[in-house]
Amino acid sequence: MIGLVYLPLVLPLLLVPAARRATAARRPEAAARALTAAALLAAACSSACLGMLAATLLDDLPALERHEDRAAVLGRVLPEPVPGWLALAAVLLLAWFAVRLAREAWRRDRAAAVLHGAGRPRAGLLVAAWAQARAVAVPPHRGRDGHILVTTGLLELLDAQEQAVVYAHEQAHLRRGHHRVAALAAAAAAINPLLRPVPAAVDVLIERSADEDAARDVGDRILVAHTIGKVALGDETAARDDGGLGFTGSATIRRVTALLRPPSGRVLPLLALAAAGLAVAATGLALVEFVELARAWMPPH
């Protein structure tokens, strides 16, 4: 098979620098969705190419071996598919990626179940008696609507205005369906481990998007930045935990900086979209050749 079938397997590497640049996008919501779409396309193309490589193992079927022998008697040489060890490696990789995807889906389903098990919300809000300062947009799960979960530790830390910022931020996550965007980005990385940096970048972008919505709702960007910093400083575990409002050290700095000095450039993951487009084109050409190869190996009726 032509070398184009291998290209989509490594093109996701181009999304790594693109993901890092995308976190500084002026429009974080659009950047998050574009980066996620590019990652999904790249992951789908790499899986499709692995599938084509794996399918060449079928030439060892008895019917196809007899067809090859008859062709050799007639002086015809069938086009040679990829080496058997390479096809077997593709099968093993596809199986591994399937396990990774199932594990990621189970992890997210389990996390949502645990959060919903914390209690029944009232008017879309649940206050949990936890000492940690946390606020979470709990996504819909198995027929139950999404809601906001805040801890007593957070309420004791913040005043009324700052609490309003938190509610606006988490409501933005629910309204925009950020749990789906994050889940799709994580799924792409599960299918192709080269995309591992993408979910972290998408997480930063959706947090920034919710910050922007909160700033519009409360009408005070400085208040939102102050609230983010206050929660990060008020919870010692925030620097080590990706949960809740996403108050990791680097994420907090990026979010506060973006609120106080909004990015002026139109930074979108164009490199990621270009890489995904190239992966689609290469996969399409590889598929055309694979179909021609399959026809040549198809035994006559």
Rank of each mutant, 00 (worst) to 15 (best):
H178C: 02
H179E: 12
H179L: 05
H179D: 06
H179F: 13
R180D: 14
R180H: 14
A182T: 15
A183I: 13
A183L: 09
A183T: 10
A183K: 01
A183Q: 07
A186G: 12
A186T: 11
A186Y: 03
A186M: 07
A186C: 04
A187W: 15
A187K: 00
A188M: 12
A188R: 01
A188P: 02
A189I: 06
A189E: 04
A189G: 04
A190T: 10
I191Y: 04
I191M: 12
N192Q: 08
N192S: 14
N192E: 11
N192H: 11
N192F: 05
P193F: 12
L194M: 04
L194G: 08
L194N: 09
L194F: 15
L195G: 00
L195H: 06
L195M: 14
R196E: 14
P197Y: 13
V198P: 06
V198L: 10
P199K: 09
P199E: 03
P199A: 14
P199W: 11
A200C: 02
A200R: 08
A200Q: 12
A200G: 12
A200P: 03
A201S: 14
A201W: 13
V202E: 05
V202T: 15
V202L: 05
V202F: 02
V202R: 01
V202N: 06
D203T: 13
D203V: 13
D203H: 15
V204T: 09
I206Q: 05
E207V: 12
E207D: 15
R208Q: 15
R208M: 12
R208F: 13
S209V: 08
A210D: 14
A210H: 09
D211V: 03
D211A: 06
E212R: 15
D213I: 01
A214T: 07
A214N: 07
A214C: 09
A215G: 07
A215N: 11
R216S: 07
R216C: 04
R216L: 07
D217Q: 13
V218P: 04
V218W: 03
V218A: 02
G219A: 08
D220N: 12
D220C: 13
D220A: 01
R221V: 03
I222A: 06
L223I: 06
L223T: 02
A225M: 01
A225V: 03
A225S: 01
H226I: 02
H226V: 01
H226L: 00
H226Q: 08
T227E: 00
T227F: 00
T227R: 00
I228F: 09
K230C: 02
A232T: 05
G234N: 00
G234P: 09
G234S: 02
D235L: 00
D235M: 02
E236L: 13
E236P: 11
T237P: 01
T237N: 07
T237S: 04
A238Q: 09
A238Y: 00
A239T: 12
R240H: 07
R240T: 04
R240F: 12
R240C: 07
D241P: 01
D241Y: 11
D242N: 15
G243M: 01
G244P: 10
G244N: 10
